[in-house]
């Protein structure tokens, strides 16, 4: 399969990338590691006229401790995040999940920023950033702005990043408590049929997010409020799919996904309550 014809420009800096986005508007797409965009282009589900390659902006590949937060450059590849000492120490759930994305070849190319900006509800990393209560930093013509992860994912493959903006950094709070990532799939390297992330946050709350349970990556709101009201893990997990409309596809029906969400959230909450992580 061969993508439709496009023009290609390589950005030398964030400013250069933003200038190219400004110049080409809706016709342009940013290319990072290419492991979400190129498969869509090969299937011709995406046919951008202009690819702006930001894959060489090494200045956006970093994992840094900044006070109580960890800052991750948008072009940090999954493999680099997986083995980052800072991530493993301060946000082990993020390093762990980075090591569960796709397979080694995918992790050598794919980037956290690319995965999050793609906004795929079936991707693992957006759910982790949601469960960590993270913030997404975008740069654009008006300068930098910060978007809470709860306001970032706006629809299927749609985010709050404007066409002339670029995601440059992901910020998450360090965690000290338990965490759990439960991924259910049929094939080793595949996307999750359903996934669940639970994190014991510093403020004492437990945050829970779900993979592939709706049009966007999302927080399990009913479970979180049940926990806040004193529910046991089993009680809170029983409402995990409340209000959600997961997709039906060749891998799983909507009903099956709802069932999986309850089972995986229960396992994740039991893990967290036992202090695992």
């Amino acid at each position: 399969m061969i993508p439709a014809t496009f023009d290609y420009r390589r950005a030398d800096s964030v400013a250069d990338a933003l200038a190219l986005l400004h110049e080409y508007g809706d016709e342009a797409k940013l290319l990072a590691g290419g492991h979400s965009l190129l498969p869509l282009m090969k299937l011709r589900l995406a046919t951008p006229q202009m690819l702006v390659d930001v894959g060489r902006l090494g200045q956006l590949s970093y994992v840094r401790q900044e006070g109580d937060e960890v800052a991750i450059g948008a072009l940090t590849r999954h493999r680099d995040l997986e083995v980052s000492e800072v991530a493993r120490h301060s946000v082990p759930v993020l390093a762990h999940v980075a090591g569960q994305v796709g397979d080694p070849q995918v992790r050598h190319r794919g980037t956290i920023g690319g995965s999050i900006a793609h906004g795929d509800p079936a991707s693992d990393l957006p759910a982790v950033v949601l469960a960590l209560g993270g913030t997404l930093v975008v740069d654009g013509p008006g300068g930098r702005r910060e978007i809470p992860s709860t306001e970032f994912f706006t629809g299927f493959l749609e985010t709050a990043v404007r066409p002339d903006e670029m995601l440059v950094e992901i910020r998450v709070a360090s965690t000290a408590g338990g965490w759990s990532f439960q991924k259910f799939n049929r094939r080793a390297q595949d996307w999750a049929i359903v996934g669940a992330v639970a994190v014991a946050a510093a403020d004492g709350a437990t945050r829970v997010s779900l993979v592939h349970m709706g049009a966007t990556p999302l927080r399990a709101a009913a479970t979180e409020s049940a926990l806040a009201g004193g529910a046991t893990p089993a009680e809170a997990a029983a409402v995990a799919a409340e209000g959600l409309e997961p997709p039906s596809d060749a891998n799983a029906s909507r009903e099956y996904r709802r069932h999986l969400a309850e089972v995986l959230v229960r396992r994740a909450l039991e893990d967290v309550s036992l202090g695992h992580g």
Partner: peptide, 26 residues
């Protein structure tokens, strides 16, 4: 041809990648 099977795996700067999902210009 869909980033799944790994038959096209090569080393790019020393690490494995699926060459069906990398542009030559990259």
């Amino acid at each position: 041809d869909t980033t799944s099977c790994g038959a096209c795996t090569v080393l790019l700067d020393g690490v494995s990648v699926k060459s069906c999902t990398v542009l030559a210009v990259q």
